[in-house]
Simulated assay, not measured.
Amino acid sequence: MVFPEYRPRRMRKNEAFRGLIRENRLDPAQFIYPLFVMPGKNKREAIASMPGVFRVSIDQLAQEARECLELGVNSVILFGLPEKKDAMGSGAHAKNGIIQQAIRELKNKVPELMVVTDVCLCEYTDHGHCGCLINNDVDNDATLEILAKTALSHAEAGADIVAPSDMMDGRVAEIRAALDEHGHETVPIMSYAVKYASAFYGPFRDAADCAPQFGDRRGYQMDPANSREALREATLDVDEGADILMVKPAVAYLDIISRLRDEFDLPIAAYHVSGEYAMIKAAAERGWIDGDRVMAETLLSIKRAGADIIITYFAKDMARLLRR
């Protein structure tokens, strides 16, 4: 048999060769680790549907942060569980709200950590929707003012990046205007620009206690069937002043990450969401897959699709594996 002159296997025969020509690499400095913050003291509660992930009280945050930094994971994103909820989600922008306290704690104890904050109302409303309601329908424009107040309160507490996840039309412009007007023009906005109405969010809603009490979020989150619409959503956010564009979920929407990467020159983030994480963990616990290899392969697929930043519950696990 006559072979072609070029044999690809020549460059695959050992790790030194493979590493030499590897096109994509995972770097813990480009991971963001989600943290769920709960009221109380000295609390650390396991989340049953997300093995290895915990809700922690504010006094436990510094320990979590130092562990991240030790592993090279320099950034976290905060989600809060307030003591009280109401119809308007007023706890989201309270000066001494759960996230505002968490930001100050981290910036006081671990100032080198980058703190990103999720800006949404679903964790703070008693109905579980991402905005205020009129006749059981989320009112887009009335919600914008509350979102801007929330983002501003995070910036004033010391947040490095604010990340609106609500999918209200016009929220990036509203938040950008509020930040700039109050002297926070250097705080970037990482917009959940393309957030689908996905079935992969279930474990997160357990963790953050934010499932809708009626209906669903398909009236404001994107239809999973659409891809061209993703470009329209991202373009709007770019025009309104977004600094980073995010796609959520990640693995089920690698094509969308790739399309945004081709279309825009802003940094692209991808959220490897709770359901995507939980499936790998569950299968690995049953011995059906090699958990470490599947974790690495999955995160590499997100990177290969074009993401610069990966928000993932695997951040610490992957950092440990890379260190080994």
Rank of each mutant, 00 (worst) to 15 (best):
N140C: 13
K248W: 10
A284W: 03
E233Q: 14
I310K: 08
Y33H: 14
F204T: 08
A207R: 08
S165T: 03
R259C: 01
C132Q: 14
A102C: 04
E185I: 13
L299P: 10
A307Y: 11
R10W: 11
K43W: 10
D209R: 12
E263S: 10
M295Y: 13
A319H: 03
A252Y: 13
E174Y: 03
K43Y: 08
S75D: 05
Y271E: 01
K248A: 02
I32P: 01
L179M: 07
R171A: 05
L69D: 02
I289T: 09
D169S: 07
K41S: 15
A197Y: 11
L106H: 02
E297A: 14
L35R: 07
A62N: 00
D239E: 15
P4N: 04
D141E: 15
A305S: 14
H182Y: 11
C68L: 00
I311W: 05
K195S: 10
L69S: 01
S191C: 11
F17N: 00
K316S: 07
A211V: 13
P28R: 04
L322K: 06
I58L: 07
G170Y: 04
N136K: 14
R44G: 09
G72Y: 05
E174T: 13
D237Q: 08
D243E: 12
A211Y: 13
P8F: 07
Q100N: 14
Y192F: 15
D141P: 01
G91L: 08
M279C: 00
E185S: 15
A283W: 05
N135E: 15
G158A: 04
